[in-house]
C-alpha cells in the first residue's frame, strides 16, 4: 500500500471540500478501498474518512412506512433491520449475501453502491425499492434516482466532491425477494442478481418492479416485464412472458465465470422465481 495523508473531517462540508481535490479517495468501511490500495489499483494521495461525521448511519422509518437508510449504515445493520426485512425484504436479503459477517460488519451500503460494481448485492434490492439517492457537496444537495446513478461498470454520475448521504425508500412493497446466482453458499460474487417487488390489490399485481444486477454494464430495471405484470393476476403463462421479457432486457457478457447465454437463461429463470416468491409473500 502506498502511503497517504489521512483526514477525518467531522462535517460533510469539510469532507466534500477535501474530496473535491485531486488524487483523493473516500473511506467508508474500507472493504473495497483497502483492497484496491493493497493491489495498487488505488493509490490516492489523501484518504478522507466519513466515519467521524455524525448522522450518516442508521435506518429510520417514517409514519407512512417510508424508510431512510444512511449511506454509512453497515450492510450487517441493513440485513438485520426489522423494518427493512418487512418492507424491503429483497434489500435485506441482498445485504445478507455480502461476503462474511466480518465483512458485513465493516462494509457500508453507501460504499457498496458508490463502488458501482454491476454485481453489488444491495443494488437490485434498492432498484426495486425505487430508492432515491441523496447526494451532498459543497454546492448543496441533489437527489438522483438509483436507476440513474450508474453510467458504467465502476462509474456513476457522482462528481468530484459529491458524497452519498442516504437512500430514501419511498414506497414499501408487501412482497419482495432477491436471488443471487452463485456457486458457493457464502463468500462468492453474483453471476447475476435478480430482485422482484410487488404489491397486490385483490390478487392483481400493482407496482411490479424487477431489478437485474450483473447482466448489463449497469444494474437495470426490467420495465417491459414489469409492465406485463402490472394490472394482472399471476398465471404460469404471464410468469413465463415476464421471464422472457426480463431476459430480453439483459445484455450480459461472457467471462471466466459463465457464458452470456447462461446468464440470459438464468435471468429468465430467476425472474420467474423471484416474481413468484414476491407474490407469495405479498
Amino acid at each position: 500500500m502506498r502511503n497517504f495523508e489521512f483526514f477525518e473531517p467531522t462535517t460533510l462540508a469539510e469532507a466534500s471540500r477535501l474530496f473535491a481535490q485531486e488524487h483523493t479517495q473516500l473511506l467508508a468501511g474500507g472493504t473495497d478501498l483497502v483492497i484496491g490500495m493493497k493491489a495498487l489499483t488505488e493509490a490516492p494521495q489523501s484518504v478522507i474518512s466519513l466515519q467521524k461525521i455524525p448522522g450518516l448511519a442508521g435506518v429510520t422509518t417514517e409514519s407512512d412506512n417510508s424508510i431512510s437508510v444512511g449511506a454509512m449504515t453497515k450492510v450487517r445493520a441493513v440485513e438485520l433491520s426489522a423494518d427493512i426485512q418487512q418492507h424491503h425484504t429483497a434489500l435485506a436479503e441482498g445485504a445478507a449475501e455480502i461476503g462474511s459477517i466480518q465483512i458485513r460488519n465493516l462494509a457500508t451500503i453507501g460504499g457498496n453502491i458508490a463502488h458501482a460494481s454491476p454485481a453489488a448485492d444491495t443494488v437490485a434490492g434498492l432498484l426495486v425499492a425505487d430508492a432515491q439517492v441523496d447526494i451532498a457537496s459543497a454546492d448543496g444537495e441533489r437527489t438522483v434516482s438509483i436507476d440513474e446513478l450508474f453510467t458504467g461498470p465502476g462509474q456513476t454520475v457522482l462528481a468530484p466532491g459529491e458524497i452519498i448521504t442516504r437512500f430514501r425508500l419511498p414506497s414499501p412493497a408487501s412482497g419482495s425477494h432477491y436471488i443471487k446466482h452463485k456457486i458457493r453458499e457464502v463468500m462468492d460474487l453474483a453471476f447475476i442478481g435478480v430482485a422482484a417487488a410487488v404489491n397486490l390489490n385483490d390478487g392483481v399485481i400493482t407496482d411490479a418492479r424487477i431489478g437485474l444486477a450483473a447482466v448489463a454494464p449497469t444494474p437495470i430495471r426490467a420495465t417491459e416485464a414489469e409492465n406485463l405484470l402490472n394490472g394482472n393476476q399471476l398465471t404460469a403463462e404471464l410468469l413465463a412472458q415476464a421471464g422472457e421479457a426480463a431476459a430480453a432486457a439483459a445484455s450480459p457478457i461472457s467471462d471466466l465465470r459463465c457464458s452470456a447465454e447462461h446468464r440470459s437463461e438464468m435471468v429468465n429463470v430467476l425472474t420467474r422465481r423471484t416474481v413468484q416468491e414476491a407474490v407469495n409473500r405479498a
Partner: peptide, 13 residues
C-alpha cells in the same frame, strides 16, 4: 463487540 477482518481496517480508524 463486532467481529471484523483486521486486514481490511486501517489502524488509524
Amino acid at each position: 463487540g463486532e467481529a471484523v477482518t483486521s486486514c481490511m481496517v486501517l489502524g488509524v480508524t
